[in-house]
């Protein structure tokens, strides 16, 4: 287990060189991938979303494509099309950029719902249906999506069903002054990014993902998690609380966190770490996003761990 901790620390350290002073979001992002979940990064333009996504793909040593979502992007543009091959005298499928181990869906909310939903089957099932034929996507398959806050102009809010496919939604926020100064004084992050080397491979990733499922969650931890989730179902200004899929996701993330910390068992702190990133995009109601986060904090402060 300490092996996983060492690897995780190394990965976090390496990405931290590119994305300075953002260790916590990096750890969460990594936990999300270890837990076989898709990641949504939401922040203002220029905060380093794309950098984080690219760095993750690069460090994990996986095959990687990037799709820039725009308002005129069509489903066929990401899934692929069949083109007539004059030599064979038949149609041949040309896979789109979705057929990749890590897909960076940049600015996913700039595109129309039609294209957004094309991602849905891919994310949920790990396969796509094109022209009546179901095609499996490579494994492992990650979607790291970035999006601008919905209040920005020219955005289409993601439908709830789509949001639910993302295991976590994290945001980066402004760097603290020291980190920003370091960023300004040092080498350009784009240069560092291009120099980045992988420190994992696909086999190791699969092993880690398998180990995550073996992490023990004792009764008291499960009770605590259930109580937290129960509380979200009776919150003011929230129409629906966390679904059972959400609570399973929370437990999975907590396991990944525990593993990254070198433990075989989940402790309440793991759950607390993942609670807000896992839950904040799954709650919809009259409350704004900031309000949702503060409501979730309240829940953490009122439910006792014993």
């Amino acid at each position: 287990m300490s092996g996983v901790k060492k690897i995780a620390d190394a990965v976090v350290h390496r990405i931290g060189q590119v994305l300075i002073g953002k260790e916590e979001p990096i750890r969460l992002a990594l936990a999300c991938l270890f837990a076989r979940g898709h990641l949504l990064i939401e922040d203002l333009p220029g905060m380093g979303k794309t950098t984080l996504a690219r760095a993750l793909a690069g460090v994990l040593g996986l095959e990687y494509t990037r799709i820039q979502f725009t308002s005129d992007l069509l489903p066929a543009d990401i899934v692929g099309v069949s083109v007539y091959d004059r030599n064979n005298g038949g149609f041949e499928f040309h896979p789109g950029p979705l057929f990749s181990q890590v897909v960076l869906a940049d600015e996913i909310n700039r595109t129309t719902p039609k294209t957004q939903s094309a991602l849905l089957e891919a994310m949920a099932e790990g396969q796509v249906s094109v022209e009546g034929e179901t095609r499996a996507l490579p494994s492992p398959f990650f979607v790291i999506a970035t999006q601008n806050p919905v209040s920005q102009s020219g955005t289409f809010p993601l439908p709830e069903s789509q949001l639910d496919r993302f295991l976590m939604r994290i945001s980066l926020g402004y760097p603290d002054p020291a980190a920003e100064r370091e960023l300004l004084a040092g080498v350009d992050p784009r240069v560092r990014l291009s120099r980045m080397k992988a420190c994992m491979d696909q086999k190791l990733l699969c092993q880690i993902q398998q180990k995550v499922t073996e992490v023990q969650a004792s009764d008291s931890v499960v009770d605590y998690l259930q109580e937290l989730v129960q509380q979200t179902r009776s919150m003011p200004d929230i129409e629906h609380g966390i679904s059972p899929r959400g609570s399973m996701a929370l437990l999975q993330c907590a396991r990944a966190c525990a593993l990254m910390d070198g433990r075989r068992y989940v402790i309440p702190e793991d759950i607390q770490t993942c609670f807000i990133p896992v839950c904040n995009h799954r709650l919809r109601g009259t409350a704004s996003e900031q309000e949702v986060v503060s409501l979730l904090r309240q829940v953490l402060d009122t439910v006792d761990i014993l």
Binding site: P268, Q272, D301
Partner: peptide
């Protein structure tokens, strides 16, 4: 097990270092 931990929290509370609700043991 919980009783032991609660007793520990009580002793610490006497020193002015009570555990907050929702605060995990490690934190």
């Amino acid at each position: 097990i919980d009783r032991c931990f609660l007793e520990f929290c009580r002793r610490m509370a006497r020193l002015g270092l009570g555990r907050r609700i929702g605060e995990g043991p490690r934190d």
